[in-house]
């Protein structure tokens, strides 16, 4: 139980980077971008084939981010210059990326099990620090039997994700970032204040997909493989993370909203992991669970709100009835 939650947090904190990317397009730019299902795989594919070809893992991960940036920019160009509707532009790009990803990998799957990944490197540096032994000691004194093999991935990824979050927060407060945020709200105003909306959208979708591809590159290295189909359903996972985060935490400021998205991604992973522990569930059910989570997160607040309204109305009516009865008695 603890080990599987620990694993969920490990991958959750990486998927959080992807969720931040989806947040940039869906929430900030109001651009429902489906490119991510392809660019996530592009990230994994570029990282994996670079590593297999002897490129250092850190460089491979940066290349993955760059490839995602290009893919996102292309979607932005399709929309702004080609005047293609955002959803369709994303679907077209995602479809094209499927072939491109196969070309990058040269085969449907690349295994990294024999290779040195970022996380292997991290693990060997880490074991010298003795932090694992220290933390696991604490866990065993509180009575846990199964202990995680390493804390390196979780702790280092928390640091990396927080750095990415802080950079995103800062970016969204810069002159460029403010104009970008206004685009999702009011394009006409942004144009009338002399900002190049086309270029901002292209750049914004590019940054979003750079984050998604970074997550893809890292997930590939964590899992030890890249696969042409690993992006399937990713957009719903990203949305689930955003919606869960927004439902549970405050989103008043940008800094709070991005934190909510990160926490949402981790909580989403934990929910799925726990759901899969139920006996009759199979791994293949994960997508359905995700869809159900999103639907529930969207519908439940509405139902609750409607109930509240109903109760309020009934109370009002009852009050009025009572008043009427009171006055007729008199």
């Amino acid at each position: 139980m603890f080990i599987s939650i620990f694993g969920a947090m490990e991958s959750g904190i990486i998927y959080a980077i992807m969720a931040l990317g989806v947040y940039l397009t869906f929430r900030i730019l109001d651009f429902p971008d489906l490119t991510v299902e392809g660019s996530f795989v592009t990230g994994a594919a570029v990282a994996a084939s670079s590593i297999v070809n002897g490129i250092p893992p850190i460089t491979a991960t940066i290349l993955a981010a760059f490839a995602g940036f290009i893919a996102g920019c292309l979607t932005g160009v399709l929309h702004t210059k080609g005047k293609i509707n955002p959803l369709l532009a994303g679907i077209l790009m995602m479809t094209a990326l499927y072939s491109i990803n196969l070309r990058i990998m040269g085969q449907p799957t690349i295994s990294l099990l024999q290779e040195t990944t970022l996380f292997n490197q991290l693990g060997s540096l880490w074991s010298a620090t003795g932090i694992d032994a220290f933390l696991n000691n604490i866990l065993s004194t509180i009575g846990l039997e199964q202990l995680p093999t390493t804390w390196a991935i979780l702790l280092v990824m928390i640091v990396i994700t927080i750095i990415i979050k802080l950079l995103t927060d800062y970016f969204l407060k810069t002159e460029v970032g403010l104009a970008l945020r206004a685009i999702g709200d009011n394009k006409k105003m942004v144009r009338s204040l002399s900002a190049n909306t086309d270029l901002l959208i292209i750049f914004g979708v590019g940054i979003s997909n750079a984050l998604v591809a970074t997550a893809g590159g890292l997930i590939g290295q964590l899992g030890g493989f890249a696969d042409a189909n690993m992006g399937l359903g990713l957009i719903v996972i990203g949305l689930a993370s955003i919606i869960i985060g927004e439902a549970l935490f405050s989103t008043k400021t940008i800094a709070k909203a991005t934190l909510a998205v990160i926490l949402g991604a981790i909580i989403y992973r934990i929910i799925v992991t726990l759901a899969l522990r139920i006996d009759f569930m199979e791994t293949g059910d994960m997508k359905m669970i995700t869809a159900i989570i999103v639907i529930a997160a969207l519908v439940i607040p509405r139902v609750l709100q409607a109930r509240k309204e109903n109760r309020r109305r009934q109370q009002k009516r009852a009050q009025l009835d009572q008043q009427l009865r009171g006055s007729s008695d008199a």
Partner: peptide, 16 residues
């Protein structure tokens, strides 16, 4: 801040 950048180049520095 967005309006203030109207006749200037928008950069990666804080708007407010």
């Amino acid at each position: 801040a967005i309006a203030y950048s109207r006749n200037k180049k928008r950069r990666l520095r804080l708007g407010v």
